[in-house]
Design a protein around this nucleic acid. Structure first.
Lengths: 209, 209
DNA sequence: CAAAACTAATCAAACGATTGATTAGTGGAA
DNA sequence: TTCCACTAATCAATCGTTTGATTAGTTTTG
Protein backbone atom coordinates (compact mmCIF):
# COMPACT_ATOMS: atom_id res chain seq x y z
CA UNK A 1 0.00 0.00 0.00
CA UNK A 2 2.67 2.44 1.03
CA UNK A 3 4.53 1.61 -2.12
CA UNK A 4 1.51 2.10 -4.33
CA UNK A 5 0.68 5.41 -2.77
CA UNK A 6 4.18 6.68 -3.43
CA UNK A 7 3.94 5.44 -6.98
CA UNK A 8 0.68 7.27 -7.44
CA UNK A 9 2.12 10.46 -6.02
CA UNK A 10 5.12 10.13 -8.27
CA UNK A 11 2.90 9.59 -11.26
CA UNK A 12 0.98 12.77 -10.48
CA UNK A 13 4.22 14.71 -10.16
CA UNK A 14 5.47 13.30 -13.46
CA UNK A 15 2.36 14.49 -15.24
CA UNK A 16 2.26 17.82 -13.42
CA UNK A 17 5.87 18.48 -14.35
CA UNK A 18 5.07 18.00 -18.03
CA UNK A 19 1.91 20.11 -17.92
CA UNK A 20 3.71 22.92 -16.10
CA UNK A 21 6.40 22.86 -18.79
CA UNK A 22 3.78 22.93 -21.52
CA UNK A 23 1.54 25.69 -20.23
CA UNK A 24 3.40 27.48 -17.47
CA UNK A 25 2.40 27.58 -13.81
CA UNK A 26 -0.62 29.83 -14.26
CA UNK A 27 -1.59 28.29 -17.59
CA UNK A 28 -1.69 24.78 -16.15
CA UNK A 29 -4.99 24.12 -14.41
CA UNK A 30 -5.40 21.61 -11.64
CA UNK A 31 -8.14 20.02 -13.73
CA UNK A 32 -5.77 19.48 -16.63
CA UNK A 33 -3.18 17.92 -14.35
CA UNK A 34 -5.58 15.62 -12.52
CA UNK A 35 -7.36 14.74 -15.75
CA UNK A 36 -4.15 13.82 -17.55
CA UNK A 37 -2.95 11.86 -14.53
CA UNK A 38 -6.26 10.01 -14.32
CA UNK A 39 -6.99 10.94 -10.72
CA UNK A 40 -9.69 12.92 -9.02
CA UNK A 41 -9.04 16.62 -8.76
CA UNK A 42 -9.37 16.64 -5.01
CA UNK A 43 -6.44 14.23 -4.78
CA UNK A 44 -4.02 17.02 -5.62
CA UNK A 45 -5.11 18.91 -2.54
CA UNK A 46 -5.36 15.74 -0.52
CA UNK A 47 -1.77 14.76 -1.31
CA UNK A 48 -0.04 18.09 -1.76
CA UNK A 49 -2.31 20.62 -0.06
CA UNK A 50 -2.55 23.01 -2.96
CA UNK A 51 -1.47 23.74 -6.51
CA UNK A 52 1.63 25.45 -5.21
CA UNK A 53 2.20 22.40 -3.04
CA UNK A 54 2.32 20.25 -6.18
CA UNK A 55 4.78 22.69 -7.70
CA UNK A 56 7.07 22.63 -4.70
CA UNK A 57 6.83 18.85 -4.41
CA UNK A 58 8.20 18.60 -7.93
CA UNK A 59 11.15 20.66 -6.77
CA UNK A 60 11.87 18.68 -3.67
CA UNK A 61 11.84 15.49 -5.68
CA UNK A 62 14.41 16.73 -8.18
CA UNK A 63 16.92 18.87 -6.37
CA UNK A 64 18.21 16.97 -3.38
CA UNK A 65 20.29 14.29 -5.11
CA UNK A 66 21.33 16.53 -7.95
CA UNK A 67 22.77 19.21 -5.70
CA UNK A 68 24.63 16.66 -3.64
CA UNK A 69 26.37 15.22 -6.70
CA UNK A 70 27.47 18.62 -7.95
CA UNK A 71 28.65 19.72 -4.53
CA UNK A 72 30.76 16.57 -4.17
CA UNK A 73 32.50 17.29 -7.45
CA UNK A 74 33.28 20.80 -6.26
CA UNK A 75 34.62 19.59 -2.93
CA UNK A 76 36.75 16.75 -4.30
CA UNK A 77 40.32 17.76 -3.48
CA UNK A 78 41.92 14.84 -5.31
CA UNK A 79 41.33 16.06 -8.88
CA UNK A 80 42.51 19.09 -10.82
CA UNK A 81 40.34 22.10 -11.75
CA UNK A 82 40.26 20.95 -15.37
CA UNK A 83 38.99 17.55 -14.35
CA UNK A 84 36.46 19.11 -12.01
CA UNK A 85 35.20 21.26 -14.84
CA UNK A 86 34.83 18.21 -17.05
CA UNK A 87 33.00 16.24 -14.40
CA UNK A 88 30.72 19.14 -13.58
CA UNK A 89 29.79 19.60 -17.24
CA UNK A 90 29.18 15.87 -17.62
CA UNK A 91 26.89 15.61 -14.62
CA UNK A 92 25.14 18.84 -15.33
CA UNK A 93 24.34 18.22 -18.98
CA UNK A 94 23.24 14.69 -18.16
CA UNK A 95 20.79 15.75 -15.46
CA UNK A 96 19.40 18.81 -17.17
CA UNK A 97 18.71 17.06 -20.45
CA UNK A 98 17.10 14.12 -18.67
CA UNK A 99 14.90 16.38 -16.59
CA UNK A 100 14.25 18.97 -19.25
CA UNK A 101 10.61 19.47 -18.32
CA UNK A 102 11.63 20.31 -14.81
CA UNK A 103 14.21 22.82 -15.91
CA UNK A 104 11.88 24.51 -18.35
CA UNK A 105 9.35 24.87 -15.57
CA UNK A 106 11.96 26.12 -13.15
CA UNK A 107 13.32 28.78 -15.42
CA UNK A 108 10.01 30.14 -16.47
CA UNK A 109 9.15 30.81 -12.86
CA UNK A 110 12.52 32.25 -11.96
CA UNK A 111 12.30 34.71 -14.84
CA UNK A 112 9.47 36.58 -13.19
CA UNK A 113 10.89 39.98 -12.29
CA UNK A 114 8.41 40.34 -9.46
CA UNK A 115 9.90 38.81 -6.37
CA UNK A 116 7.79 36.38 -4.42
CA UNK A 117 8.22 33.63 -1.90
CA UNK A 118 8.37 31.18 -4.78
CA UNK A 119 11.02 33.01 -6.80
CA UNK A 120 13.10 33.45 -3.66
CA UNK A 121 13.00 29.72 -2.99
CA UNK A 122 13.94 28.85 -6.55
CA UNK A 123 16.68 31.44 -6.61
CA UNK A 124 18.23 29.97 -3.51
CA UNK A 125 18.18 26.49 -5.04
CA UNK A 126 19.74 27.54 -8.33
CA UNK A 127 22.35 29.68 -6.63
CA UNK A 128 23.80 26.60 -4.97
CA UNK A 129 24.72 25.06 -8.31
CA UNK A 130 26.09 28.35 -9.54
CA UNK A 131 28.25 28.77 -6.47
CA UNK A 132 29.83 25.35 -6.92
CA UNK A 133 30.72 26.18 -10.51
CA UNK A 134 32.11 29.57 -9.54
CA UNK A 135 34.23 27.89 -6.90
CA UNK A 136 35.79 25.57 -9.46
CA UNK A 137 36.67 28.46 -11.75
CA UNK A 138 38.03 30.58 -8.91
CA UNK A 139 40.22 27.70 -7.68
CA UNK A 140 41.63 27.14 -11.15
CA UNK A 141 42.48 30.79 -11.59
CA UNK A 142 44.08 30.99 -8.18
CA UNK A 143 46.24 27.94 -8.80
CA UNK A 144 47.32 29.37 -12.16
CA UNK A 145 45.84 26.60 -14.26
CA UNK A 146 43.22 28.90 -15.79
CA UNK A 147 43.97 32.19 -17.51
CA UNK A 148 43.92 35.23 -15.24
CA UNK A 149 42.26 38.05 -17.18
CA UNK A 150 38.87 36.43 -17.72
CA UNK A 151 35.36 37.41 -16.77
CA UNK A 152 34.54 34.62 -14.35
CA UNK A 153 31.04 35.86 -13.61
CA UNK A 154 29.94 36.12 -17.21
CA UNK A 155 31.44 32.71 -17.89
CA UNK A 156 28.85 31.40 -15.46
CA UNK A 157 26.17 33.03 -17.59
CA UNK A 158 27.61 31.38 -20.69
CA UNK A 159 27.67 27.83 -19.38
CA UNK A 160 24.25 27.91 -17.78
CA UNK A 161 22.87 30.15 -20.52
CA UNK A 162 23.97 27.87 -23.35
CA UNK A 163 22.33 24.92 -21.70
CA UNK A 164 19.17 26.93 -21.01
CA UNK A 165 18.94 28.10 -24.57
CA UNK A 166 18.99 24.55 -25.88
CA UNK A 167 16.50 23.26 -23.36
CA UNK A 168 14.21 26.23 -22.79
CA UNK A 169 13.66 27.26 -26.38
CA UNK A 170 13.17 23.82 -27.92
CA UNK A 171 11.24 25.13 -30.92
CA UNK A 172 14.22 27.33 -31.83
CA UNK A 173 17.09 25.03 -30.96
CA UNK A 174 15.49 22.08 -32.74
CA UNK A 175 15.52 24.08 -35.96
CA UNK A 176 19.08 25.30 -35.41
CA UNK A 177 20.45 21.88 -34.53
CA UNK A 178 18.43 19.98 -37.10
CA UNK A 179 16.76 17.47 -34.76
CA UNK A 180 14.12 17.44 -32.04
CA UNK A 181 15.90 18.32 -28.80
CA UNK A 182 12.95 17.03 -26.79
CA UNK A 183 13.15 13.56 -28.31
CA UNK A 184 14.69 11.05 -25.94
CA UNK A 185 16.64 9.14 -28.55
CA UNK A 186 18.08 12.22 -30.21
CA UNK A 187 19.08 13.47 -26.77
CA UNK A 188 21.11 10.35 -26.03
CA UNK A 189 22.70 9.88 -29.45
CA UNK A 190 23.32 13.43 -30.50
CA UNK A 191 22.52 16.22 -28.08
CA UNK A 192 24.22 15.08 -24.89
CA UNK A 193 27.64 14.13 -26.34
CA UNK A 194 27.65 17.15 -28.60
CA UNK A 195 26.78 19.61 -25.86
CA UNK A 196 29.31 18.13 -23.45
CA UNK A 197 32.09 18.27 -26.02
CA UNK A 198 31.20 21.77 -27.09
CA UNK A 199 31.09 23.24 -23.59
CA UNK A 200 34.43 21.64 -22.71
CA UNK A 201 36.03 23.02 -25.87
CA UNK A 202 34.55 26.45 -25.30
CA UNK A 203 35.80 26.58 -21.73
CA UNK A 204 39.21 25.37 -22.83
CA UNK A 205 39.42 28.03 -25.53
CA UNK A 206 38.48 30.78 -23.10
CA UNK A 207 40.30 29.63 -19.97
CA UNK A 208 43.51 28.09 -21.29
CA UNK A 209 46.70 30.07 -20.82
CA UNK B 1 -5.86 64.43 -31.18
CA UNK B 2 -4.33 61.70 -33.25
CA UNK B 3 -1.07 62.21 -31.39
CA UNK B 4 -2.62 61.79 -27.98
CA UNK B 5 -4.40 58.59 -28.89
CA UNK B 6 -1.14 57.01 -30.00
CA UNK B 7 0.49 58.14 -26.80
CA UNK B 8 -2.25 56.54 -24.79
CA UNK B 9 -2.02 53.28 -26.68
CA UNK B 10 1.74 53.36 -26.23
CA UNK B 11 1.33 53.96 -22.54
CA UNK B 12 -0.92 50.93 -22.23
CA UNK B 13 1.60 48.79 -24.09
CA UNK B 14 4.42 50.05 -21.87
CA UNK B 15 2.53 49.03 -18.77
CA UNK B 16 1.34 45.73 -20.25
CA UNK B 17 4.89 44.84 -21.22
CA UNK B 18 6.05 45.32 -17.65
CA UNK B 19 3.13 43.40 -16.14
CA UNK B 20 3.60 40.52 -18.56
CA UNK B 21 7.28 40.38 -17.61
CA UNK B 22 6.39 40.40 -13.93
CA UNK B 23 3.63 37.81 -13.88
CA UNK B 24 3.73 35.98 -17.22
CA UNK B 25 1.02 36.00 -19.86
CA UNK B 26 -1.48 33.93 -17.91
CA UNK B 27 -0.55 35.47 -14.59
CA UNK B 28 -1.15 39.00 -15.82
CA UNK B 29 -4.83 39.87 -15.66
CA UNK B 30 -6.45 42.46 -17.88
CA UNK B 31 -7.65 44.11 -14.71
CA UNK B 32 -4.10 44.48 -13.44
CA UNK B 33 -2.92 45.95 -16.73
CA UNK B 34 -5.77 48.40 -17.14
CA UNK B 35 -5.64 49.32 -13.47
CA UNK B 36 -1.92 50.02 -13.52
CA UNK B 37 -2.26 51.97 -16.76
CA UNK B 38 -5.08 54.03 -15.32
CA UNK B 39 -7.56 53.23 -18.06
CA UNK B 40 -10.85 51.44 -18.12
CA UNK B 41 -10.70 47.71 -18.64
CA UNK B 42 -12.84 47.85 -21.74
CA UNK B 43 -10.26 50.04 -23.44
CA UNK B 44 -7.94 47.07 -23.87
CA UNK B 45 -10.53 45.29 -25.99
CA UNK B 46 -11.59 48.50 -27.68
CA UNK B 47 -8.02 49.25 -28.80
CA UNK B 48 -6.48 45.83 -29.21
CA UNK B 49 -9.41 43.44 -29.55
CA UNK B 50 -8.34 41.04 -26.85
CA UNK B 51 -5.70 40.17 -24.29
CA UNK B 52 -3.75 38.32 -26.95
CA UNK B 53 -4.15 41.39 -29.15
CA UNK B 54 -2.37 43.44 -26.51
CA UNK B 55 0.38 40.84 -26.38
CA UNK B 56 0.88 40.82 -30.12
CA UNK B 57 0.75 44.63 -30.32
CA UNK B 58 3.71 44.72 -27.95
CA UNK B 59 5.58 42.51 -30.39
CA UNK B 60 4.77 44.50 -33.47
CA UNK B 61 5.95 47.66 -31.77
CA UNK B 62 9.34 46.19 -30.85
CA UNK B 63 10.45 43.94 -33.64
CA UNK B 64 10.18 45.82 -36.93
CA UNK B 65 13.05 48.30 -36.54
CA UNK B 66 15.21 45.91 -34.56
CA UNK B 67 15.13 43.18 -37.16
CA UNK B 68 15.87 45.64 -39.93
CA UNK B 69 19.02 46.91 -38.21
CA UNK B 70 20.35 43.40 -37.61
CA UNK B 71 19.56 42.28 -41.14
CA UNK B 72 21.42 45.27 -42.58
CA UNK B 73 24.52 44.37 -40.61
CA UNK B 74 24.36 40.85 -41.97
CA UNK B 75 23.90 42.03 -45.54
CA UNK B 76 26.63 44.67 -45.48
CA UNK B 77 29.22 43.43 -47.97
CA UNK B 78 31.72 46.18 -47.24
CA UNK B 79 32.92 44.93 -43.84
CA UNK B 80 34.70 41.80 -42.69
CA UNK B 81 33.11 38.93 -40.74
CA UNK B 82 34.93 40.00 -37.58
CA UNK B 83 33.56 43.52 -37.90
CA UNK B 84 30.10 42.17 -38.60
CA UNK B 85 30.29 40.08 -35.48
CA UNK B 86 31.30 43.13 -33.45
CA UNK B 87 28.53 45.24 -34.88
CA UNK B 88 25.95 42.52 -34.36
CA UNK B 89 26.95 42.07 -30.72
CA UNK B 90 26.88 45.82 -30.16
CA UNK B 91 23.41 46.28 -31.60
CA UNK B 92 22.03 43.18 -30.03
CA UNK B 93 23.24 43.80 -26.49
CA UNK B 94 22.12 47.40 -26.70
CA UNK B 95 18.59 46.58 -27.79
CA UNK B 96 18.03 43.59 -25.56
CA UNK B 97 19.21 45.31 -22.40
CA UNK B 98 17.13 48.40 -23.17
CA UNK B 99 14.01 46.36 -23.82
CA UNK B 100 14.63 43.76 -21.15
CA UNK B 101 10.98 43.53 -20.09
CA UNK B 102 10.03 42.67 -23.63
CA UNK B 103 12.65 39.96 -23.94
CA UNK B 104 11.75 38.40 -20.64
CA UNK B 105 8.14 38.27 -21.73
CA UNK B 106 9.08 36.88 -25.13
CA UNK B 107 11.23 34.08 -23.80
CA UNK B 108 8.82 32.94 -21.19
CA UNK B 109 6.19 32.39 -23.84
CA UNK B 110 8.54 30.76 -26.32
CA UNK B 111 9.66 28.28 -23.68
CA UNK B 112 6.26 26.62 -23.61
CA UNK B 113 6.81 23.18 -25.07
CA UNK B 114 3.21 23.00 -26.25
CA UNK B 115 3.04 24.48 -29.71
CA UNK B 116 0.39 27.08 -30.35
CA UNK B 117 -0.34 29.86 -32.79
CA UNK B 118 1.37 32.20 -30.40
CA UNK B 119 4.56 30.20 -29.97
CA UNK B 120 4.76 29.68 -33.74
CA UNK B 121 4.58 33.41 -34.33
CA UNK B 122 7.23 34.15 -31.74
CA UNK B 123 9.47 31.38 -33.04
CA UNK B 124 9.34 32.80 -36.55
CA UNK B 125 10.28 36.24 -35.25
CA UNK B 126 13.23 35.05 -33.18
CA UNK B 127 14.50 32.75 -35.93
CA UNK B 128 15.11 35.76 -38.16
CA UNK B 129 17.69 37.17 -35.78
CA UNK B 130 19.26 33.76 -35.33
CA UNK B 131 19.55 33.22 -39.07
CA UNK B 132 21.38 36.51 -39.55
CA UNK B 133 23.89 35.55 -36.89
CA UNK B 134 24.37 32.09 -38.35
CA UNK B 135 24.99 33.66 -41.74
CA UNK B 136 27.77 35.84 -40.35
CA UNK B 137 29.50 32.85 -38.77
CA UNK B 138 29.11 30.69 -41.86
CA UNK B 139 30.56 33.43 -44.08
CA UNK B 140 33.55 33.84 -41.82
CA UNK B 141 34.25 30.12 -41.78
CA UNK B 142 33.90 29.86 -45.54
CA UNK B 143 36.29 32.77 -46.14
CA UNK B 144 38.80 31.20 -43.77
CA UNK B 145 38.81 34.02 -41.26
CA UNK B 146 37.16 31.87 -38.58
CA UNK B 147 38.44 28.53 -37.41
CA UNK B 148 37.06 25.54 -39.27
CA UNK B 149 36.39 22.81 -36.72
CA UNK B 150 33.86 24.63 -34.57
CA UNK B 151 30.29 23.93 -33.59
CA UNK B 152 28.56 26.80 -35.33
CA UNK B 153 25.09 25.83 -34.18
CA UNK B 154 25.92 25.60 -30.51
CA UNK B 155 27.80 28.87 -30.74
CA UNK B 156 24.45 30.39 -31.55
CA UNK B 157 23.10 28.92 -28.35
CA UNK B 158 26.02 30.40 -26.42
CA UNK B 159 25.65 33.98 -27.65
CA UNK B 160 21.89 34.14 -27.30
CA UNK B 161 21.93 31.98 -24.20
CA UNK B 162 24.47 34.10 -22.34
CA UNK B 163 22.41 37.19 -23.01
CA UNK B 164 19.21 35.41 -21.97
CA UNK B 165 20.74 34.21 -18.75
CA UNK B 166 21.69 37.72 -17.71
CA UNK B 167 18.35 39.24 -18.67
CA UNK B 168 15.90 36.44 -17.94
CA UNK B 169 17.18 35.38 -14.54
CA UNK B 170 17.77 38.81 -13.04
CA UNK B 171 17.54 37.56 -9.46
CA UNK B 172 20.40 35.16 -10.16
CA UNK B 173 22.58 37.29 -12.38
CA UNK B 174 22.31 40.30 -10.08
CA UNK B 175 23.83 38.22 -7.29
CA UNK B 176 26.52 36.77 -9.53
CA UNK B 177 27.51 40.12 -11.06
CA UNK B 178 27.18 42.11 -7.86
CA UNK B 179 24.75 44.76 -9.07
CA UNK B 180 21.11 45.04 -10.08
CA UNK B 181 20.94 44.08 -13.75
CA UNK B 182 17.48 45.62 -14.00
CA UNK B 183 18.68 49.04 -12.86
CA UNK B 184 18.96 51.49 -15.75
CA UNK B 185 22.10 53.20 -14.50
CA UNK B 186 23.96 49.98 -13.77
CA UNK B 187 23.00 48.72 -17.19
CA UNK B 188 24.59 51.71 -18.94
CA UNK B 189 27.70 52.02 -16.80
CA UNK B 190 28.52 48.41 -16.12
CA UNK B 191 26.42 45.74 -17.76
CA UNK B 192 26.34 46.81 -21.41
CA UNK B 193 30.08 47.49 -21.90
CA UNK B 194 31.02 44.44 -19.89
CA UNK B 195 28.72 42.09 -21.77
CA UNK B 196 29.79 43.44 -25.16
CA UNK B 197 33.46 43.08 -24.33
CA UNK B 198 33.00 39.62 -22.90
CA UNK B 199 31.05 38.24 -25.84
CA UNK B 200 33.57 39.60 -28.30
CA UNK B 201 36.46 38.07 -26.36
CA UNK B 202 34.66 34.77 -26.04
CA UNK B 203 33.93 34.60 -29.76
CA UNK B 204 37.50 35.56 -30.52
CA UNK B 205 38.86 32.84 -28.27
CA UNK B 206 36.64 30.21 -29.83
CA UNK B 207 36.71 31.27 -33.48
CA UNK B 208 40.23 32.57 -33.98
CA UNK B 209 42.62 30.40 -35.95
C1' DC C 1 -24.66 81.01 -37.08
C1' DA C 2 -27.02 77.51 -34.61
C1' DA C 3 -29.33 73.29 -34.26
C1' DA C 4 -29.09 68.54 -35.41
C1' DA C 5 -26.73 64.39 -36.67
C1' DC C 6 -22.97 61.75 -36.22
C1' DT C 7 -18.50 59.61 -34.33
C1' DA C 8 -14.93 58.14 -31.32
C1' DA C 9 -13.65 57.55 -26.57
C1' DT C 10 -14.81 56.13 -22.20
C1' DC C 11 -17.32 54.18 -18.40
C1' DA C 12 -19.66 51.11 -14.76
C1' DA C 13 -21.88 46.94 -14.65
C1' DA C 14 -22.65 42.49 -15.74
C1' DC C 15 -21.79 38.22 -18.52
C1' DG C 16 -20.72 33.15 -18.69
C1' DA C 17 -16.82 30.37 -18.05
C1' DT C 18 -13.13 28.66 -15.44
C1' DT C 19 -10.19 28.80 -11.61
C1' DG C 20 -8.29 26.51 -7.03
C1' DA C 21 -10.27 24.79 -3.12
C1' DT C 22 -13.61 22.48 0.03
C1' DT C 23 -17.26 19.68 1.49
C1' DA C 24 -19.96 15.67 2.75
C1' DG C 25 -20.08 11.19 1.98
C1' DT C 26 -18.81 6.31 0.05
C1' DG C 27 -16.41 1.92 0.29
C1' DG C 28 -13.04 -1.14 1.77
C1' DA C 29 -9.24 -2.64 4.82
C1' DA C 30 -7.53 -3.40 9.56
C1' DT D 1 -15.88 0.02 14.48
C1' DT D 2 -12.41 2.99 13.11
C1' DC D 3 -9.44 4.72 9.84
C1' DC D 4 -7.78 5.84 5.39
C1' DA D 5 -8.11 6.46 0.36
C1' DC D 6 -11.04 8.32 -2.66
C1' DT D 7 -15.01 10.66 -5.14
C1' DA D 8 -18.85 13.70 -6.94
C1' DA D 9 -20.75 17.86 -6.08
C1' DT D 10 -20.21 22.35 -4.93
C1' DC D 11 -18.03 26.72 -3.30
C1' DA D 12 -16.60 31.64 -3.78
C1' DA D 13 -13.39 34.14 -6.45
C1' DT D 14 -11.49 35.63 -10.53
C1' DC D 15 -10.96 35.37 -15.31
C1' DG D 16 -11.51 37.79 -20.25
C1' DT D 17 -15.04 39.79 -22.56
C1' DT D 18 -19.38 42.28 -23.78
C1' DT D 19 -22.88 45.36 -23.04
C1' DG D 20 -25.61 49.70 -23.08
C1' DA D 21 -25.15 54.28 -21.70
C1' DT D 22 -22.71 58.67 -21.48
C1' DT D 23 -19.46 62.14 -22.73
C1' DA D 24 -16.96 65.22 -25.73
C1' DG D 25 -15.83 66.67 -30.12
C1' DT D 26 -16.68 67.11 -35.06
C1' DT D 27 -19.69 67.52 -39.37
C1' DT D 28 -23.56 68.34 -41.62
C1' DT D 29 -27.63 70.79 -42.44
C1' DG D 30 -31.18 74.38 -42.57
Amino acid sequence: MEKEKTDKKDHILDVAERIFAEFGYDGASTRAISGEAGVNMAMLNYYFGSKEGVFLAIFERRIALFQQVLAEIGDDASISPWEKLDKYIESYVEKVVNNNCFHIMLHREISKTKKSELTDKITAIVMKNVTVFQGIIADGVKSGEFKKDTDQELLVATVFGTKNYIINTPHISSVVLGYDVLDGEAQEDKLKPRLKKYLKNLLKAYLQN
